[in-house]
Write a protein that binds this DNA or RNA. Structure first.
Length: 573
DNA sequence: GCCGTTTTCGGCCCGACTGTTTTCAGTCG
C-alpha cells in the first residue's frame, strides 16, 4: 500500500470541494468533500487500516464515491479524478480566493465572462473598469477588490514573527558553529519580538569578517545576494526574506548589537542621555566628547551599567518609558516561558479541534504544564461545531473521569462563547453556571461601527458568567484588520468588571496587542496567555504569547496561568 | 455526494451583512 500523508488527503478533498464550487456544482456536493476532509482530519482510527479492511464505507459521510476516491488515494498516492478536475482550471484561479469579497461564484463569473485567471489580470481588469460590466458587480465591489489586492501587495514583504524566527534560529545555529565567528545574535525588530518583521538583522563579531561573509553567502538557503561588503552583506533567503549580516570586531560587538537592535526611538533617547553626560554613543562605541576616549563594555549589560541603569530587555526598547524606569531601577521582571504553569483556551474534537481532550492533556503534561482549560466553541458557532447542551454534559463527564484518574494534572471545564451582535452570549444562565470559566469572543458581524461594537463587547463584559475576553481586537495579522472598537473603553470596562484579558498566542493573532498591555496593567487588569490551540502542535504557540506579554511590560503576577491550579480557580471565582 | 426512507428523491447550511438591486445573490465566519 502506498503511504500517503493524511494531511495531503485532507488537502486534496478540500481542494476538490473548492473546485466543484468554482465549477458551479451543487454546494452540498462540495460540502460532502469538506465534511469528509474534516472527518479524516479528526479520525482516531488508522486510515490505511480502514481502507485495507474495507471499513471506510461503514462510516457516516463516506458513501460509494468518496470511499472509492479515498481508497485510490491511499493505495496509489494519487487520484485521477482530482488531477483531471484540477487541470480543467488555470492554476492562478485558486489564488483569487485570497481576495476579500471574492468567492467561488464571483471568481467563476470573472473567469467565464472576462477570462480572468490570476490576480495580475484581475488588477488590470479593475483598472480598466471592466468589472462594472458584469451583472452583480458594482463600483463598491470593484473598489473593494482593488483594496484587497493592494493589501496583499502591502503585506507581501512582511513576515510574522514565527516565520522569521524559524529562519533566524537556523542562521544563528550555523554561524555559531563557524570557526571564524566569535559571537553572534539576532538584532532588529526580530530581537525586540515585534509581531511583524520586514527583514532579519544579524550581528556577528569576528577577526576574519571576509571569511564569515563568504560562509554566509554560500549558505544553502541563500537564493540571491543583494550586496556583499566587508561589514554588511544582504541576501535573500528561501526566495523571499531579506537577511542582513553585519560583522564587526569583538570589541565593538556590544555597541553594534545594541545599536542594530533599536528601536530607532530608543537609540535616539539613549544618545540624548549620553550627550547630557558628555558622551557620544554610536554603533562603534561610547566615547568621551572631550577626550575621545572609548568606554570598554564587554556586553550590553555593561553598556546600560555605564549609565547606571538596569539592563533593558530588548522587548522593552521602544522608548515607551523603559529608559526612565531603568534609571530608577524600576523595570518589571518580565514573565518568561517557564513561568507558565498551564494552558488555557484549547479546542478539542468536540468542536473544531483536531485532538481529543485526553490527547491535549497528555501533550500538556509532556511539556510540564499542570492544568488545561478546555474551551470548545459554543452553540452559536455552528460553523465550528459549537456544542449543544447534551454535548457539554458529555464533555463534562469525560473531564470528570479524566480528573479522577490523575492527581497532579487537572482539566478545567470552559467554553468559548460567541458574543452575539446584541452583546448577549449564546447560552442561558443555567448552562453558563456549569463551567469553571468562560471565554467570550466576537466571531461574527465584524463590521459594526465603533460605538456599537464597543457597546456590544462591554455588555458581554458585564455578564457575570464571563471570565475572559477572547482575542479582544479580532485581528488576523497581515490579513484582517482589528474590528473598529474603542480599546481604551474596553480595557476600562474589563478592569471594572474584573474580566481577564486574553493574550491569544496564535502567531496570527497575538491579541491583545502588546501596545495595550501596559496601559491595561496600570488600570489593574489581569491577563491570560492563551494557546487557542486547535491541535497538539498549537500548544507550542504559548511562547509567542509570552513574547507579547513581555513586550507589554507584564510580569508573572499579571498573568493568571502562571500560578497553581488552586490559584487559577480562585481567579475564576 | 450522502443519507434516510412511510425505499429512490428531497433535504442537507445558519444568520448577518453588503452591494446590488427592487427582492436577492454572494460572501464570511
Amino acid at each position: 500500500m502506498f503511504i500517503v500523508d493524511r494531511s495531503e488527503i485532507v488537502m486534496i478533498l478540500n481542494n476538490i470541494g473548492m473546485l466543484l464550487e468554482l465549477k458551479g456544482e451543487n454546494f452540498f456536493k462540495s460540502k460532502a468533500y469538506y465534511d469528509a476532509a474534516r472527518r479524516i482530519e479528526v479520525m482516531e482510527e488508522n486510515l490505511e487500516e480502514l481502507v485495507r479492511d474495507d471499513k471506510l464505507k461503514d462510516i457516516k459521510g463516506f458513501g460509494k464515491a468518496l470511499t472509492q476516491k479515498i481508497t485510490e488515494l491511499v493505495k496509489t498516492g494519487r487520484l485521477d479524478y482530482y488531477n483531471r478536475l484540477k487541470a480543467s482550471f488555470p492554476e492562478g484561479l485558486f489564488e483569487l480566493l485570497k481576495i476579500q469579497g471574492l468567492g467561488p461564484k464571483r471568481i467563476s463569473t470573472l473567469y467565464n465572462k472576462l477570462g480572468i485567471c490570476n490576480i495580475e489580470q484581475l488588477k488590470q481588469a479593475c483598472n480598466e473598469g471592466k468589472l462594472l460590466e458584469l451583472a452583480g458587480f458594482g463600483r463598491k465591489t470593484q473598489a473593494a477588490v482593488i483594496k484587497s489586492i493592494d493589501d496583499l501587495d502591502k503585506y507581501s514583504n512582511r513576515y510574522l514573527y514565527y516565520q522569521a524566527s524559524e529562519i533566524s534560529d537556523l542562521i544563528i545555529k550555523l554561524l555559531d558553529e563557524n570557526e571564524y565567528v566569535i559571537r553572534c545574535s539576532i538584532a532588529g525588530s526580530l530581537r525586540r519580538k515585534k509581531e511583524i518583521i520586514k527583514d532579519i538583522d544579524i550581528i556577528a563579531s569576528s577577526e576574519k569578517p571576509d571569511d564569515v561573509m563568504g560562509f554566509f553567502t554560500s549558505l544553502p538557503m541563500v537564493t540571491n545576494i543583494i550586496n556583499r561588503g566587508e561589514t554588511k552583506t544582504s541576501v535573500i533567503m528561501d526566495e523571499k526574506i531579506q537577511v542582513d549580516l553585519r560583522v564587526v570586531g569583538d570589541k565593538e560587538y556590544p555597541y553594534a548589537l545594541h545599536h542594530f537592535t533599536g528601536s530607532k526611538e530608543h537609540n535616539t533617547a539613549m544618545r540624548h542621555m549620553a550627550k547630557d553626560k558628555g558622551l557620544k554613543m554610536n554603533e562603534y562605541g561610547i566615547f568621551d566628547l572631550d577626550s575621545g576616549e572609548s568606554a570598554d563594555c564587554r556586553n550590553e549589560e555593561e553598556i546600560f551599567g555605564l549609565f547606571d541603569m538596569e539592563y533593558i530587555p530588548p522587548e522593552l526598547r521602544e522608548n515607551n518609558g523603559e529608559i526612565k524606569d531603568a534609571l530608577e531601577r524600576a523595570l518589571p521582571v518580565l514573565v518568561c516561558d517557564k513561568d507558565i504553569k498551564g494552558v488555557v483556551h484549547v479546542h478539542t474534537r468536540y468542536s473544531d479541534g483536531k485532538n481529543s481532550i485526553k490527547e491535549m492533556a497528555r501533550a500538556c503534561m509532556g511539556l510540564g504544564y499542570k492544568y488545561l482549560g478546555i474551551s470548545d466553541h459554543s452553540e452559536n458557532a455552528f460553523y465550528a461545531g459549537g456544542l449543544k447542551r447534551d454535548q457539554i454534559k458529555r464533555q463534562h463527564e469525560e473531564i470528570d473521569q479524566l480528573n479522577e484518574s490523575s492527581s497532579d494534572f487537572m482539566i478545567l471545564k470552559g467554553i468559548e462563547l460567541d458574543i452575539l451582535p446584541d452583546g448577549n452570549v449564546d447560552y442561558d444562565e443555567e448552562v453558563l453556571s456549569w463551567f469553571d470559566f468562560t471565554i467570550a469572543s466576537v466571531h461574527s458581524s465584524f463590521n459594526m461601527d465603533m460605538g456599537k461594537m464597543t457597546d456590544r463587547i462591554i455588555k458581554a463584559l458585564k455578564n457575570e458568567f464571563v471570565t475572559i475576553l477572547g482575542h479582544p481586537s479580532g485581528r488576523l495579522l497581515m490579513s484582517r484588520d482589528p474590528y473598529r472598537v474603542d480599546m481604551d473603553e474596553i480595557i476600562a470596562a474589563a478592569s471594572e468588571e474584573r474580566v481577564i484579558l486574553e493574550i491569544n498566542a496564535n502567531p496570527y493573532r497575538l491579541d491583545l496587542d502588546w501596545r495595550y498591555c501596559k496601559k491595561a496593567k496600570e488600570l489593574g487588569c489581569k491577563f491570560a496567555i492563551c494557546s487557542d490551540a486547535h491541535s497538539i502542535d498549537e500548544i507550542y504557540n504559548i511562547p509567542f504569547g509570552v513574547n507579547t506579554a513581555r513586550k507589554g511590560w507584564l510580569t508573572k503576577e499579571d498573568i493568571i496561568n502562571t500560578g497553581s491550579y488552586k490559584s487559577l480557580k480562585k481567579e475564576f471565582i
